[in-house]
Amino acid sequence: MQIVSIENLSVKYNSTDIFSGVTLAVNAGDYVALAGPNGSGKSTLIKTMLGLIEPAAGSVKIFGVSPSTFADWQKVGYIPQRLVSFSPYFPATVEEVVSMGLLSGKRFPKRLSSKDNEAIDRALSLMDITALKDKKIGELSGGQQQRVIIARAVINEPELLILDEPTTAVDPETREKFFAVIDVLNKNKNTTVMLITHDTGSAGRYASKLLYFDRRVVFYGTFKDFCESENMAEYFGPGSQHLICHRHD
């Protein structure tokens, strides 16, 4: 089953092409590492998939539906690179922020059940932030805030998890724990994962596929195929290709 399907997609910003003619599909249970140089349009690609950016041409479908008409957002978890409009004075506690992920899918009056409270405790414990439960989010470090956002995204156990460089601000120990959690969701719950990362070494240990994007799809396939591809050796130069594959091995 295709979870994401993109056909001939083009995105422009002020009449300048960010990318054009992109076609790809992500199947249920895939774990795709999305890599590419800075400014290559990786974040724009996933924001277009999520309906946050309007495409100039082509089509995007998630779970077979265009993002503009898609309604079942509880199936999707998203962790942005950084919060766009978050104010440091925001007076919510960590618990209140994590619970937002659950309340969005509820009807009025939006109340948390005891089952929801257990899910919140589980998500907090998973990201090792139980002790911060009653702290104000604005008082936390960047890394701690990112762990809260990750907990908020995984609390619903989404079917599609989209992550934009989620571990840039977190320490190595938390990063390893995070990748292990995502791996469990992917393997045990068949969660489809799309992960933007520059750390192809770490991602390669878990991801089943590599999508190398540079304003177009340069490569999309398994890590094994990437490492054996002569075209990629030519594109990257043997040294760079070896670097990704060596770290992957």
Partner: peptide, 18 residues
């Protein structure tokens, strides 16, 4: 109330929450 808090916290996250 919940929608206002979510959009105030982060508009993109709120949009992806539906």
């Amino acid at each position: 109330y919940h929608e206002l808090i979510s959009v105030t916290f982060d508009e993109d996250l709120a949009k992806v929450s539906g």
